[in-house]
Design a protein around this nucleic acid. Sequence first.
DNA 1: ACCACAACCTGGCCGC
DNA 2: TGCGGCCAGGTTGTGG
Length: 270
Amino acid sequence: MPELPEVETIRRELAPRVVGRRINEVEIRWPGIIARVSPDIFRQRVQGARVTGMGRRGKYLLWTLEPEGTVIVHLRMTGQLHHHPSPVPGDKHTHLIMRLDDGSEVHYRDVRKFGRWYWTSAPEEVVGHLGPEPLSPEWTVEEFAAALGRRRRPIKALLLDQGVVAGLGNIYADEALFVAGIHPLRRGDTLHVEEVRRLHEAIRQVLLEALHAGGSTFSTYQRPDMGEGTYQRRHRVFRRTGHPCPVCGTPIERIRVSGRSTHFCPHCQR
DNA sequence: ACCACAACCTGGCCGC
DNA sequence: TGCGGCCAGGTTGTGG
């Protein structure tokens, strides 16, 4: 489940291989992954364009094209991007192949086909609903507090709301709440200033730690060079139900919050 | 405005 | 061994 650290890792590995290259051909094997425009239009707009930059907003990867437009990719649950120096056939889960002008290929694999590819001349129409970037210095405690202060939903649900802050998913929401010592069912509007400050810092800390580890690798996430992230080894609570809390030893509990499995320490997160 | 839940998909796992 | 059913979780859409 690629979240911000995984998408940023992918961006860093893919960009040097792709930026500056011309996209000679786009092969779409599963048209359902193309959103907003028809697969034919997508192919027309992308084929022949040159990639001049690769950026990220939240969990979205943005490829800037010349002469016009932006390709935006969201990997959702199981999407993977791989770069191959020379042509390979792909497998039954390979749904899109880009052939570049140096003979290399970018392959998109997605077992569950939830991921989406966009072409747009107005990226804000796709990513404009996103809240601030948590690793940007412009994301302040004050802004975070303002986004939480009026909300009655559980803090776990608010962290997963991409309009509150962009890029957190189930893993890093649970990890950040643990580091901040906040119970996932606390209502947003009941957090004290000090707790908001701790959570703001915890979010940045776990995202940066994960980024330095190359993200978390489960069966469904791989880096473009086929390497693996290692942050899953350092998860404190996520998918560690019954294991001892790394701080106090109390068994980690699992509950459902807003329909999502949620892991926490009942002693450290009251 | 708020919330719950289904839908999108498939593979892995569990129990029988 | 095989089969049915459930679960995983990001996002959108629907309905209460």
